[in-house]
Amino acid sequence: MAVAKFNSEAMEQCRTTVSSQAGQFGAIGDGFSNQYGNPDIFGKLGSSGAVSGAVTAMDQAGAQEFDAAEKVLRKVESTIDVIQTNVDDVEETTKNSFRAV
């Protein structure tokens, strides 16, 4: 019979790394917020409004994508935490099921 082996340290390192990355993606996304292009910076060009609108759309899309990445990584972190807890609970239950003879 094969014995299951779990590397708790590796799971914790993975969870910690994912948590760190989630925060970094969130911080990048926060940097995008409200960086809208003002049409006036282009002077009297006829397409100033269109360029400004494109910059605004890009800013909003960037913020949304980094926010989505942060949320996915937070879910991964949470899932790893649940797995760690379940493994610990099963190991504790198994340990307690053995009785000294």
Rank of each mutant, 00 (worst) to 15 (best):
T16P: 02
T17E: 10
V18H: 07
V18S: 07
V18F: 10
S19W: 01
S19I: 00
S19C: 08
S19L: 10
S20T: 12
S20L: 12
Q21Y: 10
Q21E: 06
A22D: 07
A22R: 15
A22H: 09
G23V: 07
Q24Y: 11
F25V: 10
G26M: 05
G26Q: 09
G26C: 06
I28C: 06
G29H: 02
G29I: 00
D30H: 02
F32C: 05
S33I: 03
S33Y: 06
N34E: 10
N34M: 06
N34L: 06
N34A: 13
Q35T: 08
G37C: 10
N38C: 04
N38V: 06
P39K: 09
P39L: 07
D40S: 15
I41L: 10
I41D: 09
I41R: 05
I41T: 12
I41H: 03
I41N: 05
F42W: 15
F42V: 02
F42I: 00
K44W: 07
K44Y: 08
L45F: 12
G46A: 12
G46R: 03
S48R: 11
S48M: 00
G49T: 13
G49A: 15
A50Q: 14
A50I: 12
A50T: 13
V51R: 06
V51H: 05
S52M: 04
G53M: 02
G53S: 13
A54Y: 06
T56W: 02
T56G: 05
M58K: 12
M58D: 10
M58A: 15
M58S: 13
M58E: 08
M58I: 13
D59M: 14
D59G: 14
Q60I: 12
A61I: 04
A61L: 04
G62D: 04
Q64P: 02
Q64T: 03
Q64E: 01
E65H: 09
E65T: 05
E65S: 06
E65M: 08
F66S: 00
F66L: 10
F66T: 08
F66V: 00
D67Y: 03
A68Q: 11
A68P: 01
A68V: 03
A69L: 11
E70I: 03
E70S: 07
K71S: 12
K71P: 00
K71Y: 05
V72S: 15
L73H: 13
L73Q: 15
R74T: 11
R74A: 11
K75E: 15
K75N: 14
